[in-house]
Write a protein that binds this DNA or RNA. Structure first.
Length: 760
DNA sequence: ACAGGGTGT
């Protein structure tokens, strides 16, 4: 149909409508083209208070001319040459070219993630070796930043020889030879293209972090080199330690050590253990502020509660101390993932004058967020960890001591720019007793999704698969049972058509199953909207205690149906207001931001919801539309190589409110909730006479989480929830009201789990 | 009668 498909694809990326005469009042970028044809982005100064979410950011990649590229690359070359990896280039390359698998231990600042891929790229081009290089990263920003940096070092525009691929943003093209991608993305590619035939080298970076997805990739790679890809080169890159485990897994692959380039950090320990960690952290900050040179302080605390407390206390005492003694004024900032993005951004502000920035952070600052100017680290030695209990179908959130590796990583945050100091709020002996490594995530996770991937890939014996870390028989069997119950596996444990569909959807299996059910129940469009909201973490933010009641009141008054049916229906009502009522053009973005702020909703979160919704609508159309070509053909052509599918409000989806307004359409609401019941049959609790709820699976008591719209509504016959987390007690999150008669329907449809428990 | 560590498709 179109010979011009390449340009069509490219342009679809920037499809968003721009109304030049209706520009938003604030927070916008003004893009001019100067006489070189070079894009210039000027940021207009934010004229409002710094409190709103300035997150209309997009990654703008400048298209430079050849001469500009070359000049820039030449300038960067002198810096590259100082990197330890560059100085050992020949020896490293000797190992990499002579071995199929190499484990490379490079400390921070060694330049491994940027230089090694370039060495290989040059080597392959000089030797006319075909194929491209993939470098995986656990996080999106890392993939984007590395690709951008390497492109300029290499002297090309992003997307030509060097590109990146993360969800919703793909800058690769047919000429791309070096691709930085998230490990989630590489797994998607593996599902579509089981032999990874376009690559000759796969580099797994940050392997020491041991995320579930990295571990799974390692398992796939081992199978690949032993079977269909004996030619595939693999490099496992890790920041110190664990080298032996990687090496042994890949048949004793050689290990290379490259020293890093970082500054010395002196460690201090407590003489006596601390009994109040917030108090100890504050005391340390005050002490540093009195005795040490200028430089900011980064404090690691386990969670939001401790952080908010510490911020309040420090800000109170800091001014008093500053007035009475002539020490810098300390300014405290909180940092955790659930914080609104605009408040998160404040930790990057440089404080001017005789002041010292003090950041109280969760583990987010250990790997995901890097703050410059930090010279002192205060380490509580604690973190929070989510542990999945297979038998209970419940996650527990525990505060636990960190590992030695984690303590070193936290320490390192003080030595990025100059020498630093690290104050550990535990004794030398306590440190010695810490485990060397953090327990790999897969050992404490629900593995339903990995198991589905393996089934989709055609793995027969999952228990004895080439697991890098076997999650254990119990976990695998629970995963298989879940999948069987969701209809993804048949009586013989073989993947069903439904299971294939579930594995192709970019959401957790339970939600995939709900979507498929919805496609059979004429409420797909609505369920996609809700599932999209559920797929964004921290969409509904926690209001500050003083505005909590107000915000809850506003949410309740907006969501007429949510008030009765619960959080899933509330999400749909909120989505409809955001998406349909508030308007879509650039001019109304301010209106939408204000609306989000009033309801304590993340504006950035909702923008993500819209993207996910668009992706899900496209995928569902390909999956369920009988007129459509096969999914994998479509997705290979479109999804991997472009950004988002070509969804328009087309006739595959019925117009949502043709006849009735959603909130008045009782039948629709009930069929939506019944769809969710089929994916979350285990997450049902029955109302008891004493107004508590008991789960149908184990009879445990479960409470409605205070963030739920149903928190104050005490009289539901039964509830269904998408998450069951034990913190101070067992809490149900994303709660919906369920009628007992609906459960009867599920029972008659043959869901044994509910049948037994309801009867007993 | 009152609260969630961090990633990814």
């Amino acid at each position: 149909m179109n010979k011009n498909s390449k340009t069509t694809k490219k342009s679809s990326k920037h499809r968003s409508k721009v109304h030049p005469f209706n520009r938003p009042k604030r927070n916008h970028a003004n893009i001019n083209i100067n006489n070189n044809g070079k894009k210039i982005v000027k940021f207009i100064e934010n004229n409002s208070d710094a409190d709103d979410e300035n997150d209309d950011y997009e990654f703008v990649h400048h298209q430079n001319t050849k001469t500009e590229l070359k000049e820039k690359a030449n300038k960067l070359l002198s810096i590259r040459k100082t990197l330890p990896v560059y100085q050992n280039k020949n020896e490293i390359m000797k190992y990499l070219t002579e071995n199929q698998v190499t484990v490379l231990i490079g400390e921070t600042g060694s330049g491994k993630s940027t230089q090694i891929p370039q060495f290989l790229l040059n080597f392959f081009q000089e030797n006319k070796i075909r194929g491209s290089i993939a470098v995986t990263q656990p996080r999106r920003v890392a993939a984007i930043n590395l690709a951008t940096r390497v492109a300029s070092e290499y002297g090309c525009n992003i997307g030509s020889y060097v590109g990146y691929s993360v969800r919703f943003d793909n800058t690769t093209s047919s000429t791309t030879k070096l691709k930085y991608l998230t490990d989630g993305m590489l797994l998607r590619e593996l599902m579509m293209n089981p032999t990874l035939k376009e690559y000759n080298t796969i580099i797994i970076d940050e392997a020491h972090e041991r995320t579930v997805l990295t571990d799974i990739i390692l398992g796939f790679l081992k199978s690949l080199i032993h079977k269909s890809r004996p030619d595939l080169k693999i490099i496992v890159m890790s920041a110190t330690l664990q080298a032996e485990k990687f090496s042994q897994f890949f048949d004793n692959a050689p290990i290379l050590f490259v020293e890093g380039r970082k500054f010395n950090v002196t460690q201090y320990y407590l003489k006596a253990p601390s009994d109040d960690i917030v108090d100890s952290v504050i005391r340390s900050c005050v002490q540093i502020n009195q005795g040490e040179q200028m430089g900011d302080i980064l404090c690691f605390l386990p969670g939001q509660e401790e952080i908010d407390k510490a911020v309040t206390i420090l800000n109170k005492i800091s001014e008093i101390i500053h007035k009475e003694t002539s020490v810098p004024l300390m300014i405290a900032y909180p940092l955790y993932a659930a914080l609104p993005p605009a408040k998160q951004a404040l930790v990057f502000n440089r404080v001017k004058g005789f002041k010292r920035k003090v950041i109280f952070s969760t583990n987010i600052a250990e790997t995901s967020v890097t703050i410059s100017g930090v010279k002192f680290v205060v380490d509580s030695g604690l973190r929070k960890v989510k542990v999945w209990r297979h038998q209970l179908g419940l996650a527990t959130l525990l505060t636990v001591p960190i590992s030695k590796a984690s303590a070193m990583q936290r320490c390192g945050r003080a030595g990025r720019e100059s020498e630093g100091k690290c104050y550990r709020l535990y004794r030398t002996n306590d440190y010695k007793k810490l485990p060397d490594q953090t327990e790999p995530e897969i050992a404490r996770s629900n593995v339903t999704s990995p198991v589905l991937m393996l089934k989709k890939y055609g793995v027969q014996d999952i228990i004895n698969w080439t697991w890098f870390e076997n999650p254990g028989k119990e976990a695998i069997i629970m995963g298989l049972q879940e999948l069987y119950q969701l209809g993804a596996l048949d009586d013989f444990g073989k993947i069903t058509k439904r299971g294939e569909q579930m594995s192709l959807l970019p959401i957790q299996p339970h939600l995939s199953s709900v979507l498929i059910k919805a496609s059979e129940c004429n409420c797909l469009s609505e369920v996609i909207d809700i599932v999209s909201c559920l797929s964004v973490e921290n969409l509904l933010l926690n209001p500050q205690p003083e505005e909590r009641d107000e915000v809850n009141e506003r949410r309740l008054s907006l969501c007429n149906s949510g008030r009765h049916y619960g959080d899933l229906i509330m999400l749909k009502e909120l989505f409809d207001i955001y998406f349909y009522d508030l308007g879509k053009d650039v001019a109304s973005s301010v209106e939408r931001q204000d609306w989000c702020k009033e309801l304590c909703i993340s504006y950035r979160g909702f923008k993500n919801v819209v993207k996910i919704r668009e992706q899900l609508r496209t995928y569902c159309k390909w999956l369920f539309d009988s007129n459509s070509k096969t999914f994998s053909k479509k997705i290979k052509k479109n999804s991997i190589n472009t950004n988002i599918g070509e969804d328009k409000e087309d006739d595959f989806y019925s117009t949502p409110f043709l006849n009735k307004k959603f909130s008045e359409d009782k039948d629709k609401i009930e069929s939506i909730l019944k769809c969710f019941l089929t994916g979350f049959t285990k997450n049902i609790a029955i109302g008891m006479p004493d107004r508590s709820y008991r789960t149908v699976t184990t009879g445990e008591t479960v409470s409605v989480h205070p963030s739920s719209l149903l928190f104050l509504n005490k009289a539901c016959p039964a509830i269904m929830y998408t998450e069951y987390v034990f913190t101070t007690k067992g809490y149900a999150r994303n709660v919906s009201r369920i009628e007992l008669s609906w459960l009867q329907e599920i029972v008659t449809n043959g869901h044994a789990v509910v049948k037994e428990k309801v009867a007993s």
